[in-house]
Design a protein around this nucleic acid. Structure first.
Lengths: 215, 215
DNA sequence: GCTTGTGAAATCTTTCACAGCA
DNA sequence: TGCTGTGAAAGATTTCACAAGC
């Protein structure tokens, strides 16, 4: 079952499998769909169905070879090439994300940070120096940036996104507490932390509960 | 259509509608499903179906009364009561979240922060002073905390979650780059920022793109 | 006339259950 | 025997399309 379009729900779980595999890679050379499912918090049939979209990389009676499966998932996710990330908005959240270890360990390289505040420009954030937003157009082209992370206030989010898109950035992760729009050929994910808490507080009332997001 | 169980997919969109309504509340006393849909990035029929789960709060030929609809959504989400939040892990991300404006503006109050590092304990983060994790049990009970936000390293995430649960916290938002488990009656959402970027980088390759998360 | 509310259809996702292979 | 890979069934979600109401 190779070459066809991978369902969106599956794509959202592949990175989770990858993380579980990375954690498990020390223990055993192979892993069963059952164990992988348990660690990822899903059903074993789901794991097998998901992985079948990549091809037949398991061995019946044995399981999946951990290293090989990691390679195949990475390849399909397109995470095997180092991608360049910029962060726009060097406030608390922007600074935290710039130094967040989870990016580098997954092959993402934070190559620049931007802020409109002259007091922030020039200060050191992680391994980058904060640049003025006015320099975004040149910097984006020059560095051939892949991903933009937006941590500006809501009021600046849309104009920031427009700048990123016109600078050739094809993936945008928006943390600003407002919804932004992009042309259809740009990948966009919106994350609003306040919204997350509202959803949680709903589930608290009922019996049903565990919900996973960003996975 | 009132009183029955609200579908999970709908619950995930309600907070987004709430945010859109808050933004639109200045402009007009009413809003159509079409406009609300456009601002929330979904289909108008979906908005109507979603809202129909709360009751019939619209007026045919007119639309929805913004203030009243906000009230109804808030009530159903259980966000009309002020909820107490603690943040465990006072690193960059924890500090950023402690001062993140999106929580307070949505009725969540950050009442305490914890860290295991003695150097961090006692320092000021937002309006709270960092407490040692050893004081979590008493503090959680004393303040009757509703929500726990975990921003520890992966290695400390599960034990932190266990402490939160035994301290009576019924909602947990996990930002640590590892999956944690909780008993079924605790609401859990997992957010891994590295995973987000991996998903984005997949969509970059294909034609289809815009994906919303945490919404 | 304009917009909601909602059955019915279409689509997508998950789960089942078992044939097939190591 | 044990575990994958996968059709088929079940379930959930989205979209359509239109009757009903203001």
């Amino acid at each position: 079952m190779n070459g066809h379009r991978i369902p969106e729900a599956t794509v959202n779980r592949l990175p989770v499998y990858l993380r579980v595999l990375a954690e498990a890679s020390g223990s055993s050379p192979t892993i069963s769909s059952e164990l992988l499912a348990e660690k990822a918090g899903v059903n074993a049939a789901q794991v097998r169905k998901d992985l079948s979209h990549l091809g037949s990389y398991g061995t019946r009676g044995v399981g999946y070879e951990v290293g090989y499966l990691m390679h195949q998932i990475s390849r399909r996710l397109g995470v095997d090439t180092e991608l360049k990330v910029v962060i726009v908005g060097a406030g608390n959240l922007g600074q935290a994300l710039a130094t967040y270890g989870g990016f580098a360990s997954r092959g993402f390289q934070v190559v620049a940070t931007f802020d409109s505040d002259p007091d922030k420009v020039g200060t050191r954030v992680g391994v980058t120096k904060v640049q003025p937003v006015t320099s975004m157009p040149e910097t984006l082209r020059e560095l051939r940036v892949d991903i933009g992370v937006v941590t500006t206030p809501a009021s600046a989010a849309q104009s920031t996104v427009d700048l990123l898109v016109s600078g050739g950035v094809s993936c945008i992760l928006n943390f600003a507490p407002t919804t932004v729009a992009v042309p259809g050929h740009v990948a966009l994910r919106q994350v609003d932390l306040g919204v997350e808490l509202q959803i949680l507080s709903f589930y608290r009332q009922g019996d049903i509960s565990p919900v996973a997001v960003g996975e």
